[in-house]
């Protein structure tokens, strides 16, 4: 069998969609141990494209390093069960140990200090959540997004948060003029004094839309470069290669319409909608015709729940769709 055919079959198979015959083919293919590297390579690719949840490798790395550095008896930490008989399971000892460890780590390692001082709020597919801060600012997270922020308030200095996914910000100006900085995985930083704006930070693109006030964009890696200052209505997109492009929109609020459970379409192609459905609801969307994928629509689409949204999209584009669990196929 040709490589590409096998690859597609294996990917289908990972997704649980292979027929018994295809499974047999794969099992035979796997009998050749020389194919195992390929198998894991494809599993890795497939998993990267279908992540079930986000996790911070930095935290895990720190945690593993800690485990290695401070284990007198390696066995105890490796236990995956919770047998109540272990000495360290007694609440008081664990509490004391925890306090000591936290104090020690907090003092010794800045990275661990971050782990203690910061918390992360995460939304699942189809979920939005509003996070309010003491200073009166608030952030609304769209689905499948996460925000990392200080556990015990911002303190006196810069107010700093990290975003993955999509969020709308309403930032209050503080009497001390504390800057508010949103950093996103692509390295872009949004520097704010008090304003309303929407940030989109997913793998396919990074984007900032400003509704009111003023923000400055800066690359984390290039703090000395002069920042790009945005005016209300500005929309700045950073493509995966790191190039910024600015344009103007008359309706910046549309980019936060998901807050009111709406999707704003503006000559939006079905292909883009498919990406939005994947990001927001965790669907796997297929469009079986390139012409269909480039069809566009304009309008305001209520998006209360995934089922109704799908129906409405089909109606709007006058097409059909089939759904098996999380897999959607749009067809003419």
């Amino acid at each position: 069998m040709e490589d590409q055919v096998i690859k597609n079959t294996v990917h289908d198979y990972f997704a649980g969609r292979a027929t018994p015959l295809q499974k047999k083919v794969i099992e035979d293919w796997l009998k050749d141990a020389g194919n195992h590297e390929q198998y894991y390579q494809w599993l890795h690719e497939w998993e990267l494209n279908h992540l079930q949840g986000r996790a911070s490798w930095e935290d895990a790395f720190q945690r593993t390093q800690q485990m290695l550095h401070q284990e007198p008896e390696p066995e105890s930490i490796l236990q995956t069960d919770d047998t109540p008989t272990r000495w360290w399971n007694r609440t008081s000892i664990r509490l004391i140990a925890a306090v000591l460890v936290v104090a020690f780590l907090g003092v010794s390692f800045p990275a661990i200090r971050n782990l203690i001082y910061y918390q992360t709020s995460e939304t699942g597919y189809g979920e939005t959540r509003k996070i309010s801060f003491e200073d009166g600012s608030s952030v609304t997270l769209n689905a499948n997004s996460s925000l990392r922020y200080p556990r015990f308030g911002f303190g006196e200095g810069t107010r700093r948060v990290e975003l993955r996914g999509e969020a709308d910000f309403q930032i209050e100006h503080t009497p001390q003029h504390q800057p508010f900085i949103v950093s996103i995985p692509s390295g872009l930083e949004v520097n704010v004094l008090g304003t309303q704006f929407t940030v989109f930070a997913r793998s396919r693109r990074s984007q900032v839309t400003l509704r009111s006030g003023k923000v400055a964009l800066q690359m984390k890696q290039a703090p000395q470069a002069s920042p790009l200052v945005m005016k209300p209505g500005d929309l700045v997109v950073m493509n995966p290669s790191g190039k910024l492009s600015r344009s103007h929109t008359a309706h910046p609020e549309q980019y936060a319409s998901w807050k009111d459970h709406h999707l704003t379409l503006n000559r939006t192609s079905l292909r883009e909608l498919a990406s939005i459905l994947e990001e927001t609801y965790g669907f796997e969307v297929e469009i079986n015709d390139p012409e269909l994928a480039s069809r566009t629509a304009t309008g305001l689409l209520p998006a209360e729940n995934p089922e109704a949204t799908l129906e409405l999209i089909a109606e709007l584009f006058a097409i059909n769709f089939t759904r098996h669990d999380n897999r959607i196929v749009f067809k003419d």
């Binding site: 390929q38 690719e45 494209n49 997109v237 929109t249 549309q254 503006n266 192609s269 883009e272 709007l316």
Partner: peptide, 27 residues
């Protein structure tokens, strides 16, 4: 009533999704 025309002069900025990488066991 589903489609509300939106007045707008902006250009569409959304991009094509990235193509998956070619399949080969690359070390």
């Amino acid at each position: 009533g589903l489609v509300e025309k939106l007045s707008s002069s902006e250009t569409s900025l959304r991009e094509e999704r990235l193509q998956p990488e070619p399949s080969k066991v690359i070390d």
